[in-house]
């Protein structure tokens, strides 16, 4: 006799209808948000195409995308929940579970790896007392190991919650960043000056940014490896 019982699958199936995590009274889009979503659909021939911008909007509002939020997006776009779920689960930047207030995405792809990104990750893990992929108990920080963020010339680097990049990381820079974030001070947008601009223009070409950094190899004592 086979032990196999079709009612008891060997692999646990995901809970298709979990307890909602967003309180019901908060689970809605305002008129203004619905208008913005309607604005997205105008940019494309089909409603379905607006799912990515709508999910971005929802994530900004709710912080992450539990099933009830995906259902809300599906309603707003008049499309099946399954399609929204399919899109949301394909992309890494859509958070399917609750994250820390600040998500530190440390790039560990090969250029960053070659410049010490795993030391950066270790340092952060030790400093915050969590492993990559986890959130601190106070819900403030999540650390993640991510793939190339397109700033390999300023390796090692990280991104804070899908927003600003922090370049040329050193221990001092990380300490400062964590202190700032504990005080809810996000790092500013930073322009990275092109080496040729440094030579020909004496610095950054943009006069509308306050913070600049340069492509450089950190001086030896600061260097990870």
């Amino acid at each position: 006799m086979s032990e196999f019982d079709i009612k008891k699958p060997v692999v646990a199936l995901p809970d298709m209808d979990p307890e909602p995590q967003i309180p019901e009274e908060e689970l809605f889009f305002t008129e203004e948000e619905l208008e913005r979503i309607a604005g997205f659909t105008e940019k494309y021939p089909t409603n379905r195409s607006a799912v990515m911008p709508a999910l971005w909007l929802a994530q900004e509002k709710f912080g992450f995308l539990p099933p009830e939020v995906m259902k809300l997006v599906a309603e707003a776009l008049d499309m099946p929940y399954a399609q929204v779920y399919g899109a949301a689960t394909f992309y890494t930047q859509y958070y399917k579970k609750q994250m820390g207030t600040y998500v530190l995405d440390v790039c560990c792809s090969f250029s960053c790896q070659a410049c010490g990104s795993y030391d950066v990750l270790d340092y952060l893990e030790e400093k915050l007392g969590i492993h990559a992929g986890e959130t601190t108990e106070d819900g403030r920080f999540t650390i993640q190991e991510v793939e190339c963020l397109g700033s390999c010339g300023t390796a090692p680097m990280l991104q804070v919650t899908n927003g600003p990049y922090v370049h040329n990381l050193t221990k001092e820079k990380l300490d400062e960043l964590i202190t700032d974030l504990r005080n809810d001070k996000m790092p500013p947008f930073t322009s990275v000056t092109l080496p040729q601009d440094e030579d020909e223009m004496g610095g950054n070409r943009r006069s509308d940014v306050e913070h600049t950094d340069t492509y450089r190899t950190p001086p030896a004592p600061e260097r990870w490896i």
Binding site: S111, A114, C115, C152, A155, Y215, T217
Partner: peptide, 8 residues
């Protein structure tokens, strides 16, 4: 990028 003096 990588192990050069002046990446960019």
């Amino acid at each position: 990028s990588g192990h050069v003096n002046r990446p960019g």
